[in-house]
Design a protein around this nucleic acid. Structure first.
Lengths: 132, 132
DNA sequence: CGCAAACCTTACGTTAACGTAAACTGCAAC
DNA sequence: GTTGCAGTTTACGTTAACGTAAGGTTTGCG
């Protein structure tokens, strides 16, 4: 069980982001890599957090909204009050995610129908060449 | 079957946006309301387009990406070449949406687990009051 | 030793997606 | 006829999320 850490460039490769992005997230306290002198070292914890961040972004959450969720993902030894608050925030996000899931389902169905119609229309055109 | 149209303020109420937003989208050619003199009138077409726009935004698409999709939603009498291009764009978006759907599913499951853990931890605290 | 590669900090620049303020118009009601 | 909305144009301001450029440090390698 080695204490594996990644350098900033390895992290960049892993998540397809630039160093600037990682430092920016750090500045915003979304992640907090440990230091080896000046250099940043990213542990499993930061990798996990980055996963949430990239997912969250893909679903249209702002970094600020994501930050709230991250508190939940890595429960430290918080006070009870704080823990309850975190829990509530999480419930809220879950509800939002579920809403989005339904919307997404509907959108996919809609789009599939549209594409079917579109294809029909395309198929009315005479075949021009033997290509495909 | 009346030719129902909405004023800008009615549209704003319907989609919970400001007039500025609607004019902005118009400027970006996402929508194009008809005019009664100076005033904008929004038909069923614009309402449909606005639905796509709001959905798209919730899934983290940029307005530019959304604009491409809108071309597909309202197929005019396009040239075949253009129609095929539109179709391909649509297929791409569909693929993206499906990917997001899978990610979303996974995220929901993850979050549910986290919340369950969080709740367990909360329940270890002694009951303080009779509240709730 | 020299130097290139990888990293760092600091700080100004950029883009998307609107917000906001100022000043004008058309019309319905009083 | 003027008051007052509802709407309009024009244009500068703002925020989030980085990009980018300048200049300094450390570290392995020939």
């Amino acid at each position: 069980m080695a204490a594996e850490t990644l350098t900033i460039s390895e992290m960049c490769a892993l998540f397809e982001v630039t160093p600037r992005t990682l430092r920016f997230y750090e500045d915003k306290e979304l992640i907090s890599p440990i230091r080896d002198g000046q250099r940043r070292l990213y542990t499993k914890r930061e990798i996990g957090r980055m996963r949430w961040i990239t997912h969250g972004k893909r679903f249209g959450f702002s970094l600020e909204e994501i930050r709230e969720l991250l508190d939940l993902y890595y429960l430290g030894d918080q006070q009870e009050t704080q823990l309850r608050r975190t829990y509530d925030v999480g419930r809220g996000h879950l509800a939002t995610l579920k809403e989005k899931r339904e919307e997404l389902k509907a959108s996919i169905t809609d789009l599939e129908e549209l594409l079917a119609q579109c294809k029909q229309k395309i198929d009315t055109y005479p075949v021009q060449a033997a290509a495909e």
